[in-house]
């Protein structure tokens, strides 16, 4: 039955593209009714006026596309949120505060770690020197992570080498 498919989800595909894009309901529906009238009875078991079942696939399709759009928007939202709002982005001041605290925290933790290691291992200046520099590197890494230029923590463990730029 070639025309049985008209009642399926693909039905709007038969509408000319321009009509579909303008989204004018009467034009689309009129066309489908015309097709159904020209063809044989569509043995789908549905009786009654064609307007109602024909209006449905269109709505279904619109719904499906809308849901798809929402899903893709939602998928995109967390990344954007954490980059803009999460960075307390309403004010540039907040962003600056965030980045500088990330950097200083890295350096500070490195220095503290080095000092503690020196204290217990007795390797006096070297632990502080090495760990302060490592802490500096970690601070730069933190800053680049929070502006989203480097893969997040632990990501890329199962991926290729290019995941860490």
């Amino acid at each position: 039955m070639p025309f049985a498919r008209l009642d399926g989800a693909e039905a709007p595909n038969y509408v000319a593209r321009d009509l579909e894009r303008t989204g004018k309901q009467p034009a689309g529906r009129g066309m489908e009714v015309e097709m159904a009238v020209n063809g044989e009875p569509d043995e789908t078991g549905k009786t009654g006026p064609h307007g109602q079942p024909n209006a449905d696939p269109r709505d279904d399709d619109l719904d499906r596309r809308r849901r798809h759009l929402e899903a893709s928007l939602a998928a995109r939202k967390p990344a954007r949120q954490e980059r803009e709002e999460g960075a307390s982005g309403v004010t540039g001041y907040g962003q600056a505060m965030k980045l500088s605290s990330e950097f200083i925290a890295g350096v500070g933790v490195g220095a503290a770690l080095g000092w503690v290691i020196d204290r217990f291992a007795g390797s006096s200046p070297w632990g502080l020197i090495v760990f302060l520099l490592l802490g500096f590197a970690a601070g730069v890494l933190n800053v680049m992570r929070s502006v989203g230029k480097v893969a997040e923590f632990g990501q890329g463990a199962n991926r290729g080498p290019d995941s860490k730029r």
């Binding site: 350096v107 220095a111 502080l128 020197i129 302060l132 520099l133």
Partner: peptide
């Protein structure tokens, strides 16, 4: 800048 911070920290705690 970190190098000079390092020297300062070494002078203080080293």
């Amino acid at each position: 800048g970190i190098f000079s911070l390092l020297i300062a920290l070494l002078a203080l705690f080293g």
